[in-house]
Design a protein around this nucleic acid. Sequence first.
DNA 1: TAGATTGTTAATCGATTAACAATC
DNA 2: TAGATTGTTAATCGATTAACAATC
Lengths: 214, 214
Amino acid sequence: MDESVVSKQAMQRMPYYLQKLKEMHAEGKTEISARLFAEMFGFTEIQVRKDLASVSSVHGKPKVGFKISPLIVDIENVLGFKHENKAVIVGAGSLGHALMSHKGFSEYGIEIVAAFDADEDKKGIEISGKPVYGMEQMQKFCNENRIEIGIVAVPQIAAQRVCDSLVLSGIKAIWNFAPLHLTVPRGILVQNENMAASLAMLFKHLRGVSDGTD
Amino acid sequence: MDESVVSKQAMQRMPYYLQKLKEMHAEGKTEISARLFAEMFGFTEIQVRKDLASVSSVHGKPKVGFKISPLIVDIENVLGFKHENKAVIVGAGSLGHALMSHKGFSEYGIEIVAAFDADEDKKGIEISGKPVYGMEQMQKFCNENRIEIGIVAVPQIAAQRVCDSLVLSGIKAIWNFAPLHLTVPRGILVQNENMAASLAMLFKHLRGVSDGTD
DNA sequence: TAGATTGTTAATCGATTAACAATC
DNA sequence: TAGATTGTTAATCGATTAACAATC
């Protein structure tokens, strides 16, 4: 009964399995084989098998594969999508707006409960039914509501300052959409939604392997 | 004169170096040492040195480090941020809106030139000075303007269909914001902006290492 | 010169893949 | 039983880290 170790990269593949499993479940299917997933996602069969085995509470059955229903529960548990994790967002600009309006987050176990913005005009408004407060109310609000996640959706120039305020407000993890490195005390996690890095990969592919040789 | 190999992961760290180098350049600084970067970003000194060496066109100088100006150019070249890459976006909802309004993309070498949306009401409007067309115009537009990048910002349910249309329109790379796996022909790259995976990492940290043990 | 910092070569670590036995 | 698919153990691969020589 070792604590099965799920590698960081396997963790990143889990949401894709989960999404497909839910779809198949809705279609009335009951089993999935590693081979089938491998084909769908373009992973190797062995990799999928290892991934599924590392999270599944029940063994896969030779010749049939893994049972879909328990697997859904297992993956949701591993991912943490089962708990409802409360988050606040800082920055009610167009990105903040998009995130607050996003319907799918509840499915990922995250609930955005409020936003904060330095702009006086935005104070007091609601976006998708969620209140927007002034920055000065952040600390009190986060403490009272035991918020653990802060989402940074402000321009680069304000990001570090906002990040510091979030830390002071008792936040434990920061989801950062600003394109820069945030400096935080030990014990606080910064998860970067690194669009620049994504684009870099994309361009690399476009230009092919032969470029910059001389 | 080997083609220096920049690893995939190093590639993802480059935007952070670039951002900081630009900042330092603006402050009038001329050199950066690996040690200093390591401290700033929480990487190891050796890793930073290897990263910088792998892209730098000029050797670093013992005791001083790397010259900032040429390094900026080198990293921009490696990342592909120098060329202006034209992209179209599909889905003019709140996320599409946020992406179209985002000022920083030009700095990353990407230019969003138009959006497409199935909603009749959105046809003909402009968002941040960029036109929104109906879906039926996509293929013609992309061919005529030799668009290589398509951004998918539609709900999950429409994503695969949109993806197929983009491929038919001659797109070479897809930047996918929908939370599912897209199936594409060989040779087409899908770069996922995988928010679910980010959140999974974040939750894992919040709940600490001890969870799901029994 | 002395010392800080780079560059290079080898060792380690983690993740993926391969080979093959186990089992429904 | 036969065959498909799982599970496990070993081999490979890529990235990081360590050790140390080179050099401004």
